[in-house]
Simulated scan of single mutants.
Amino acid sequence: MITAHAALARLQEGNRRFISGSGRDHTLRSQTLRNELVEGQAPFAIILGCSDSRVPAELVFDQGLGALFVIRIAGNIVAPSQIASVEFAAERFGTPLVVVLGHSRCGAVAATLEQITQPTQNQSVHLHSIVERVRPAVEPLLETELRNDPDALVCAAIRANVRISADHLRHGSEILEQRIAQRQLMIVGAEYSLETGVVDFFDGVDAPA
């Protein structure tokens, strides 16, 4: 298995291909890969991303079958099932990199801001569970000058939500903490721009050892 930094570089290279429109035609090897992957998989990165239809990780990073272990949920939040999924991939496959991938104009973050500032009484209990997990990233920002700039507030809240999710993974699992301490795992936060296609890795990216 490659190192975390090599995995990160592979994602960055794939994103550059995606942005430039020079992505690979992964269908050319799909039949061969399907046969190869029947007996097992070895994804080089775990992506915890949003369910938004505009942010498919395999396309954004120009990767084919078997390359990424993708977990998608609205707002790229972290709940017990997401932690368990990351633990599973990290332990079972030795995957060295986790990316918490948020994106611009995130509906879950916007919905949380709306619920905090203009609460409704008939919100679905299931939607409420997502809002409550995004809330800790949003509420502190409403105490700053950002409350007077809605666009800047949403941008800051999206990144704050990514950071909180990444920190939750780093410190919410003994298994993941141990792998991080042993330098077997790196967890980073990133934001995908719907406008440009660029993925900005802004949290937890350190220099190679």
Rank of each mutant, 00 (worst) to 15 (best):
L65I: 04
L65E: 04
G66T: 04
A67F: 08
A67V: 10
F69L: 05
F69Q: 05
V70Q: 03
I71Y: 11
I71F: 12
R72V: 11
A74N: 09
A74K: 02
N76L: 11
N76A: 12
I77N: 04
V78N: 06
V78C: 13
V78Y: 08
A79E: 15
P80Q: 06
Q82E: 15
I83H: 04
I83M: 08
I83C: 09
S85N: 07
V86H: 05
V86N: 04
V86T: 11
F88P: 00
F88E: 10
F88V: 02
A89F: 05
A89Y: 03
A90M: 09
R92L: 13
T95S: 11
L97H: 07
L97F: 12
L97M: 13
L97R: 01
V98H: 05
V99C: 06
V99P: 02
V100S: 13
G102M: 03
C106Q: 07
G107Q: 08
A108N: 09
V109C: 11
T112L: 07
L113S: 08
E114H: 09
E114L: 14
Q115R: 06
I116S: 11
T117D: 00
T117R: 08
Q118E: 12
T120I: 13
Q121M: 09
L127K: 10
S129Y: 11
S129P: 02
V131F: 13
V131A: 04
R133I: 14
V134F: 05
R135P: 03
R135F: 13
P136E: 15
P136Y: 06
V138W: 03
V138S: 13
V138R: 04
E139H: 01
E139F: 01
P140A: 11
P140L: 02
L141F: 06
L142E: 05
L142G: 10
E145M: 00
L146Q: 07
L146T: 08
R147V: 15
R147Y: 11
D149K: 11
P150S: 07
D151M: 12
D151E: 14
D151I: 13
A152M: 03
A152V: 04
V154P: 01
C155T: 14
C155Q: 12
A157C: 01
A160F: 01
A160E: 07
A160S: 14
N161S: 15
V162I: 08
R163I: 15
I164T: 02
S165Q: 06
S165Y: 05
A166M: 05
A166W: 02
H168E: 15
L169W: 01
L169I: 14
R170Y: 01
G172N: 05
E174H: 12
E174S: 12
I175D: 00
I175Y: 05
E177D: 07
E177N: 09
Q184H: 12
Q184L: 13
L185K: 05
M186D: 09
I187P: 07
G189S: 05
